[in-house]
Design a protein around this nucleic acid. Structure first.
Lengths: 218, 218
DNA sequence: ACCAAAAATTAGGCTTGCCTAAATCTAGAA
DNA sequence: TTCTAGATTTAGGCAAGCCTAATTTTTGGT
């Protein structure tokens, strides 16, 4: 069993690694709200534990052992998110914060019971995939909503949960996973993307549209 | 917000205090599986925080402020126990251990949601009373099963949850809160107590019978 | 190719909470 | 009343993780 801190670092490294190779000290320090020096310290510790490879001044990268643990933590996190939303009716902009606490105290038995109750979900309330118990991560190929051309139609697949405020805003607009969306226009020069969803049209900032991942229809 | 350690100490002090005035360093060190010297250290810290009164060499006692926090922690603990048993079907000999972890990460919102789902229970799966949000603790006057005379009939009110093994044993015998029990005989010299419950007779060791609290019929 | 700014690491400290060993206090038995 | 065994506290340390300040390495612009 790992400490909370170790689990948090591994999860953060996994997630940052997904957006491009090695993970820098700075990006981790921002993600975890911790001083860069603290990250270096933990990087050395994790390296000694063989959970990451740490090339000084070059960043860290998970080893297979580290990735395994990261996926377990992420599975806990996303199952808890799903459970909170489904069973307790917690609004989707709050499940992330709660799950950040719960993920560290969830025993395997509780995890299994929640998984049973939920009917073995494969994605959380934000559409993020839930790793299977064996560490398999369902992988779809998705595009950012901001990359679609005018006229294209797609299905919302996943929404970034990094900002509760944003989730609340998207929720008001009806932007949830599994909902169909059509791009009406996409302004040039990093301009807004206008979409039609549930019969309504909305203009989204380019950055916001970048936080929304979509898959092809069907 | 208190640290996990502070919450654990306050809860333990509350529970030990219920069985007789001031709480000794030794009893706390045993309850928390910690060295006596560590207890002294924490006692001083809690005293400085005005959560306990610490008379050196004489033990500690909760202040009103300390008791308030203790009751909040106990409320969390027992609501979680109830929730786990009710909503997730966790067997009663396992809820305590899980709740010990969960009690520290439960936000007020989650507590309220669980409370709603459960219909505002007043006791946990072991029959222990759940403090109200305002800190009011329902108090019944109970006797130990070991104190009943032969021929007396009563209702199981509460069973000690300090030992999972014991709970499993009692569960097999059908000894749960709200079940009616009749004392058939009570052997002298600390001998066993024979009871009839659900139509079956069982002989219980005196110590075991002491862990079972009963209330009068009706 | 150089040099300054940015990034990362090292050095030194702090807090929390735990430990063991040694010293001190208390209380019960003789 | 005294003395000793048990309980408690003090003293000194350790591990995790965090911090700031100082130093070192990397990198991008000229």
């Amino acid at each position: 069993m790992q400490t909370k801190a170790v689990e948090d670092y591994l999860k953060a490294i996994y997630e940052l690694q997904a957006e491009g190779g090695k993970v820098s000290t700075t990006s981790l320090s921002e993600r975890l709200s911790v001083a860069p020096a603290s990250v270096t310290g933990m990087a050395k510790k994790l390296a000694k534990m063989k959970l990451v490879v740490h090339e000084p001044y070059q960043g860290v990268e998970l080893t297979p052992a580290g990735e395994k643990i990261a996926l377990e933590v992420i599975r806990h996190h996303r199952l808890v998110e799903s459970y909170l939303a489904e069973a307790l009716g917690v609004p989707w902009d709050k499940v992330h914060e709660e799950a950040d606490q719960w993920e560290h105290v969830l025993s395997e038995e509780m995890e299994d019971l929640m998984d049973d109750k939920l009917g073995y979900p494969t994605s959380d309330p934000h559409g993020a995939p839930i790793p299977a118990r064996d560490g398999t991560m369902p992988k779809a190929d998705l595009r950012r909503l901001s990359e679609l051309e005018a006229g294209e139609t797609a299905v919302i697949a996943e929404v970034s949960d990094h900002d509760a405020e944003l989730l609340r805003y998207l929720g008001e607009l009806g932007i949830f996973p599994h909902v169909e969306v059509r791009v009406i226009s996409s302004a040039p020069f990093e301009g807004p993307v206008t979409i039609r969803i549930n019969g309504d049209e909305h203009a989204l900032g380019r950055e916001v549209a970048g936080y929304i991942l979509v898959g092809s229809l069907r």
